[in-house]
Write a protein that binds this DNA or RNA. Structure first.
Lengths: 152, 152
DNA sequence: ATATCTGCAAAGACTTTGCAACCTT
DNA sequence: AAGGTTGCAAAGTCTTTGCAGATAT
């Protein structure tokens, strides 16, 4: 069971984050995410990969996204329908998103004021281990123009 | 404002919010929600109703919750697993929640600062029709004590 | 050589929907 | 009586999992 093979100098007993193998499929998933500058669902990502000629199974895409998200390489959020959306994460820090409903284009946003508020709002009510979820949705300029015929 | 008094004759052609019939099942759903002071999932609500001796179908509970939420009688949110949770809504206004992960107990919270921030954060990026989603999760005093053996 | 990873299909969880019978208005 | 409601079960989505074969180190 404890088959710690020879994989690294001074390796401690801690499990440690497993390194992911750079397989063709995993790289393709990252590539698909790189092409899009917004959040996309697993099924959409899979579809675009197939459309691009990649031979990948849907389950593999799900597993890759899960692994990448666990590794902190991707940001995850849920849309109104409950579907999970993924996006290449720019910074490793804590941040939120301004997401376009139309195309998924995303802008990372931050606000120390909101962070402070969220962190302190639990105290007066006796809540501990407080975490928060903040997402902002809107329509970006391009999509607004597209849906609103010129002259409107 | 979710209740149109009398659907008098000569009413406009607009569909208008249908009034819900106070059926045994619908009332029971409201009753189940009244008992709990926190967010609960449809399945959990159904289970507690059955446990209480109510004869209700799961689909009916789902439909009732949907209708009540549409009518503005309930607040809805999604937990980490994507499940929809419902709660009797105190005020009709816009507000957010501080929810206990353990028991679901909820405190409605507000912050004009956060509202302003959310409303204005889209502008500099060209986003319009901005909406936001904010939820705060934590552990309430009771649950914190329960999970932490005395003396710890 | 071996632990991973992939693909397909089956399974799982939550939610919605079709339809006949039932109940409220 | 008329039409909204209910209940059961089937269907639908998104996501996860089992397992044999392929793959990376």
């Amino acid at each position: 069971m404890a088959g710690v093979s020879h994989r690294g100098p001074g390796a401690s007993a801690v499990p440690g984050p497993r390194r992911l193998r750079p397989t063709r499929q995993r790289l393709a998933v990252l590539g698909a995410l790189a092409d899009a500058d917004g959040f996309r669902g697993a099924q959409a990502i899979h579809a675009s990969m197939r459309a691009a000629g990649e031979r990948v199974g849907l389950a593999t895409v799900y597993r890759a996204l899960q692994a990448l998200a666990d590794a902190g390489e991707l940001d995850v959020l849920r849309d109104d329908t409950g579907e999970l959306l993924y996006r290449r994460c720019a910074g490793g820090g804590h941040h939120h998103h301004l997401v376009c409903r139309g195309c998924g284009t995303t802008v990372e946003i931050e606000s120390s004021a909101v962070e402070r508020w969220a962190a302190s709002v639990g105290e007066p009510h006796g809540f501990s281990a407080v975490e928060h979820s903040v997402e902002v949705f809107g329509t970006c300029r391009s999509c607004a123009k597209a849906s609103r015929p010129p002259g409107a």
